[in-house]
């Protein structure tokens, strides 16, 4: 059934006779026009990457960061409308902060995804608002080591179990993606935006599912993320872009449990490898043609 001309697509929160909310589907269209964003959940951390399309030569280079920190151990990247993304991030920060004031500890990634999923979904319920024109990818690292309660002053009892289960393992790297409908899933590798199809097929080639044995490492993840963004940019070659990469590891890892920008040296290396692999592909294609 077509949406246009029926009138069912003119207002949010209205179902069409076949049970669709067209305004949400149109919001998805806004996302599909945006630069590609990806997230990779690696063995020892999460990498977020973004193909940031450069709309003008007058923009300041390396400013205008789009991947945001929500809490110390968590980051968000999004495709779609920049102002909607900023709103989303601002709400996520409020959620993380209010969680801290209630529980005196950082919010787990799954809980943040849940709360933000509910928030985004609420914008599909009323005709007085429009849905978010973004798809957001949340990546973070829930601490595995026991964290002290925020504001603790002593070290607590020196003996006794303290109600903990011995040997119970918790925490680790987590990755979620939230769509304009409010739907969210956990992912090993997630992609959104214009080049998501190409990015997805690249992500599927990586070893990310723990069931298939050892996953790729964080550092490999960074290089793959750079490469995948370059692959995803192929369809959009006429536009310039800047590569943005952030990562988060465990407290023992390179970022010390924090969500940070990938250090310049590593990013440049990853970018160089990405460019090289692109050239390689082209050569292959040419060779193939030659053979033909």
């Amino acid at each position: 059934m077509t949406s246009i001309g029926t009138g069912y697509d003119l207002s949010n929160s209205v179902f069409s006779p076949d049970g669709r909310n067209f305004q949400v589907e149109y919001a998805v269209k806004a996302v599909e026009n945006g630069g590609t964003a990806i997230g990779i959940r690696c063995k020892d951390g999460v990498v977020l990457g973004l193909e940031k399309l450069v709309s003008s030569k007058l923009l300041k280079k390396d400013a205008n960061k789009r991947i945001s920190t929500v809490d110390r151990n968590m980051g968000v990247v999004y495709s779609g409308l920049q102002p909607d993304g900023k709103h989303f991030v601002s709400r996520a920060r409020d959620e993380a902060s209010s969680w801290r004031s209630t529980y005196k500890a950082p919010i787990p990634v799954s809980s943040l995804a849940n709360r933000m999923g509910s928030y985004v979904q609420a914008y599909t319920l009323y005709n007085s608002v429009r849905p978010f024109g973004i798809t957001a990818i949340i990546g973070g690292y829930d601490a595995e080591t026991e964290l002290s309660v925020d504001g603790a002053v002593g070290s607590g009892p020196k003996s006794g179990s303290g109600g903990k289960t011995k040997g119970a393992k918790e925490g680790g790297p987590y990755l979620y993606m939230i769509e304009p409908s409010g739907t969210y899933w956990g992912y090993y590798g997630a992609a959104s935006g214009k080049g998501r199809q190409a990015a997805k097929s690249e992500l599927e080639k990586l070893k990310l599912d723990p069931k298939d044995g050892e996953c790729i490492s964080l550092e490999e993840g960074v290089k793959e993320a750079a490469r995948i963004i370059y692959v995803a940019h192929e369809d959009n070659k006429d536009k310039d872009f800047e590569l943005e990469l952030t990562w988060v590891s465990s407290v023992a890892g390179p970022t010390k449990g924090r969500h940070e920008e990938v250090p310049k040296a590593l990013r440049e290396e990853a970018e160089k490898l990405a460019k090289k692999s692109m050239e390689g592909d082209e050569d292959d294609e040419e060779e193939e043609k030659m053979e033909e």
């Binding site: 801290r100 504001g151 924090r258 969500h259």
Partner: peptide
Amino acid sequence: QYLDRLLNSLDVQENYSGAATT
């Protein structure tokens, strides 16, 4: 402890641009 938590949240806020900070 209350003030410490307040400062903690202020520090988190100050470092929001942290992912973006060099």
